[in-house]
């Protein structure tokens, strides 16, 4: 089967547009007739990633590849990076500022949700250079 590839740029510091890439990906998967469960998992993972990029990294990119086995997501940013990945993965841990928390974000659930809703999750981060998250959601489970 052919691989369908999609690319999205996530603008930094713009909460009004956060979620646009995730919505576009969701609609694309719907058009392709992919099962609602898979779509929901992908949507949650990409939205959390998108929000993280807006809050912490001044934006980034999302690349999506869809083949007969899985939806593969690659999220990249050139933000400050994560000094302690293990700590960042802990539910409830957040470094979001007060004004961000007032919008309802910064619950410390972003990365844990991304891991929870995907079948493969791999995060690499370098302080001062940025963060990359690769995730896969299998089509047939």
């Amino acid at each position: 089967m052919n691989v369908l590839e999609l690319h999205y740029d996530v603008p930094g510091d713009d909460f009004t547009r956060a979620g646009e890439a995730s919505s576009a990906i969701k609609n694309k998967l719907k058009q392709m007739g992919i099962s609602p469960n898979v779509i929901r998992n992908v949507a949650i993972a990409t939205y959390e990633g998108e929000i993280n990029m807006v809050i912490h990294a001044n934006g980034g990119t999302i690349d999506v590849a869809i083949d007969s086995d899985a939806v593969t997501l690659l999220l990249k940013d050139t933000g400050d990076g994560i000094p302690d990945v293990e700590l960042a993965m802990r539910e409830g841990y957040t470094t979001a500022k007060e004004e961000i928390r007032a919008l309802g974000f910064g619950a410390g659930m972003g990365l844990p949700n991304m891991k929870k809703y995907t079948d493969e999750f791999e995060l690499t981060s370098e302080v001062g250079k940025g963060t990359e998250v690769k995730m896969k959601v299998y089509l047939n489970k």
Partner: peptide, 15 residues
Amino acid sequence: VMGNMNAVAVSVLAD
């Protein structure tokens, strides 16, 4: 009580 557009986005993505 979160009446902003991010709540709307969450609602869409989480069905």
